[in-house]
Design a protein around this nucleic acid. Structure first.
Lengths: 208, 208
DNA sequence: CACAAACTGGACGAAATCGTCCATCCGGCA
DNA sequence: TGCCGGATGGACGATTTCGTCCAGTTTGTG
């Protein structure tokens, strides 16, 4: 959960832990909407009504805070997706899953992906952030691949293509869909991108 | 081509025009690799050996330069894709097109898309950049849709799905592929993402 | 209750970065 | 050849932003 670069949360009083969490949550929200570079520490401090010294009491520098923001978003998204994908047992469940994703897109966040927007900005540019983001996408792929593998075992889906490869392809479609949706300010490209990937899976299922 | 916010290129001497172009090209390269926000004017000025005043002689501010960078990248990519996609006449041509795209990915640019990386950072955050990027993706979709529509007319491809929709889906797959490739530092996810989209198209073609 | 550690507040310093200013140089043209 | 607008060089100012400092308050514990 924690990026580990900040202050050891174990020796924090409840009040301190709450303040720390509030900072991370506020930073995550601002960075999701404005971008990481565009979000200043002063903005964060103002938005969640803490002082500069509190921020630097819990995090050694901005990079450490960013690391925790990534960890928080990753944990949130992965937990959510795991709980959704655990119940994947049929092709129709995949459509329901897609509908939930579409419904979960936030217009007020400019149709951006909480993880993808961070990755796009930080991958290859922040040495500390990159592995965290790579691990997050790995977990996401594992969660989806787990669900697809179950479909394969239950005979709902063919095995010509690995569950891992299918999952990665779907995640790519998701990410591209997010970008186009943000650019067009419309969720339709997102829906279209997923549907294209799901059609491929459906075709593999029809071959049964 | 030009963003239009800078100095009118028509009343520029050849030397001035060359300097201006050199600034845009250098800025485009740096921004592609480091990101827009992370690229400072001092870096640009240093990298192409011009002085600060020259930069401000040709562009009123950084945003205007960014607009020209977007325009330059968009024009470059779209011209290239148009010339490639004009020759699209069969399913196999699509595979060749994919191979060219894979070969065109630059490891030294962190496997990032020249347009996608700009869009990810600027869309929804820079009022001037957004429409330029949206238009660029529209042109890209038109170029691809034109090729796919030709396949449909020639009976190579079914018309159950619009050429426009297919094209948008493929572009989404491309963009997602770029992001995952950059995150994993490997071109395989990119190839996988495109192949998933092309499989869908191939399935529509097989229905003939 | 007393004391130490955790917590809080906000002013301050230092560096980076955008943008300005002005003096000088070059190149075509009457 | 002399002139004038475009082109160039680099120092300078103003602002933003990360990070520091220290003084004061709250909380848990012997």
């Amino acid at each position: 959960m924690s990026g580990g670069t900040g202050k050891d949360p174990s020796r924090l009083t409840p009040r301190g832990a709450a303040t720390r969490d509030r900072i991370v949550a506020t930073a995550a929200d601002l960075m999701h909407r404005q971008g990481v570079a565009a979000t200043t520490l002063d903005q964060i401090v103002l938005a969640c009504d803490v002082s500069k010294s509190q921020l630097y009491h819990y995090f050694p520098n901005k990079d450490a805070l960013i690391a925790d923001v990534i960890a928080a978003q990753a944990s949130r998204v992965i937990l959510h997706q795991n709980s959704l994908l655990e119940q994947l047992h049929s092709m129709d469940d995949l459509e329901k899953w897609r509908d939930l994703l579409v419904a979960g897109m936030h217009r007020d966040a400019g149709y951006r992906c909480p993880l993808g927007s961070l990755a796009n900005e930080l991958v290859g540019r922040s040495g500390h952030a990159h592995p965290l983001l790579a691990a997050a996408f790995d977990s996401l792929r594992d969660a989806l691949a787990g669900g697809l593998a179950r479909l394969q075992e239950e005979g709902e889906l063919g095995s010509e293509v690995t569950a891992d490869e299918l999952a990665l392809g779907v995640i790519a479609a998701l990410q591209g869909g997010y970008l186009l949706a943000a650019t067009m300010q419309d969720e339709q490209p997102f829906r279209l991108a997923i549907d294209m990937a799901l059609s491929r899976i459906r075709a593999l299922a029809a071959d049964r």
